[in-house]
């Protein structure tokens, strides 16, 4: 549905050229949610702006819904953009218009008859859960409500594609969840292909099917979310995953921790579950087979793209021999085991 081929974008400043994107290629299949993750300044904003040519790439091809946008005249491009929705980090609602009038905006651009606008806007406000707010001005809305208005506004022209430019970055975690749920719902219900950029792995994990990691204007890694989460190849991808799954040893355990086994101390294990790990009830199996009791100290498990992954810190109660067998057992299930020490 969206295809970028060898996109290069250079910005020219007086005497020097800055390369914001170099040879970026990606394909978003119809009906999928594709995430591009990167730190600020990596070029992700430029990338998403290239899809609807808000930024014109220096070279490369942009194909949306089978149409090469680079070949279009300004007039044809304006028309093509009506089918490419976009929402923004700072919502970009018109402060001079009410919620109703904001949603009606894109319909007015097409000279839609008044009665039809009325009907469509009412429908859309119901879809995003903002009935009864149509006469309010944006200034009186919360961030989440503003983004809902922006989503309704961009859906008004029946886009096939939705571009999300850090759409949840200005929202608190709970509101982020609700907006992501709405996007997922739109994707499923209206079969709209979504390309989003973000710096939060949480967003990718929550709704994306595929993800690409961008760094210094290049896509350094891309694939299915489950694949990237289970087999991150680059350090950057690992860092983003770690940010979504960090686990620290509590300070009182840290104080009691020793490196070598000692009488009266129990091993402290870190178990890492990846996409390759066998999805079995391993803790209870270990308890049954090896008479080992496990005390979960902290854990962060998650489920994304059809795989379970995460980290868990456990304290093991049992004989030394059984503990070693348990560790081997975990390893046989493709669970990464690290003996942090003894507490």
């Amino acid at each position: 549905m969206i295809e970028l081929r060898n996109i290069t974008k250079k910005f020219f400043q007086k005497t020097r050229a800055i390369t914001a994107l170099s040879e970026v290629s990606l394909t978003v299949p119809e009906g999928k949610i594709f995430g591009v993750i990167g730190s600020s300044g990596a070029g992700k904003s430029t990338l998403i702006r290239c899809v609807n040519l808000l930024e014109k790439p220096t070279s490369g091809e942009v194909i949306v819904d089978g149409q090469n946008l680079m070949d279009l005249s300004p007039k044809e491009l304006a028309k093509a953009r009506r089918h490419i929705g976009m929402i923004f980090q700072h919502f970009n609602l018109l402060s001079s218009r009410t919620v109703f009038e904001n949603v009606a905006f894109s319909l007015e651009l097409d000279y839609t008859p008044k009665a039809e606008i009325e009907k469509r806007v009412t429908e859309l406000l119901a879809l995003v859960g903002l009935e009864g707010k149509q006469h309010d001005y944006p200034v009186s809305l919360s961030g989440g409500q503003k983004q809902r208005v922006a989503i309704a506004r961009t859906l008004a022209s029946n886009p096939k594609v939705l571009l999300c430019d850090e759409a949840t970055s200005a929202l608190d975690p709970a509101t982020t969840k609700s907006i992501l749920a709405l996007l997922k719902d739109i994707n499923k219900r209206l079969n709209i292909t979504i390309l989003l950029i973000t710096h939060e792995m949480e967003v990718v994990k929550d709704i994306c099917d595929e993800v690409a990691v961008i760094s210094e204007g290049q896509l350094i890694e891309q694939g299915a979310v489950s694949e990237i989460f289970s087999h991150p190849k680059t350090a950057l991808a690992k860092a983003f995953i770690a940010s979504a799954l960090s686990l620290d040893i509590p300070s009182d355990y840290q104080e009691r921790l020793v490196a070598e086994p000692m009488a009266g101390k129990r091993p402290l294990l870190k178990l890492e579950f990846t996409g390759q790990s066998v999805d079995d009830p391993v803790l209870s199996e270990v308890a049954r087979h090896f008479q080992i009791d496990s005390n979960v100290i902290s854990a962060r498990m998650d489920y994304a793209g059809g795989v379970k992954f995460g980290v868990m810190l456990i304290e093991v109660f049992g004989t030394q021999e059984n503990s070693l067998q348990a560790i081997e057992f975990y390893k046989s299930k493709n669970i990464k085991v690290e003996v942090i020490g003894y507490v």
């Binding site: 609807n52 028309k79 953009r81 009506r82 976009m86 923004f88 700072h90 970009n92 018109l94 651009l109």
Partner: peptide, 11 residues
């Protein structure tokens, strides 16, 4: 951003 949003909507 408002101009950008309008351009993105095909104004």
């Amino acid at each position: 951003g408002l101009i950008e949003a309008a351009r993105a909507m095909g104004a």
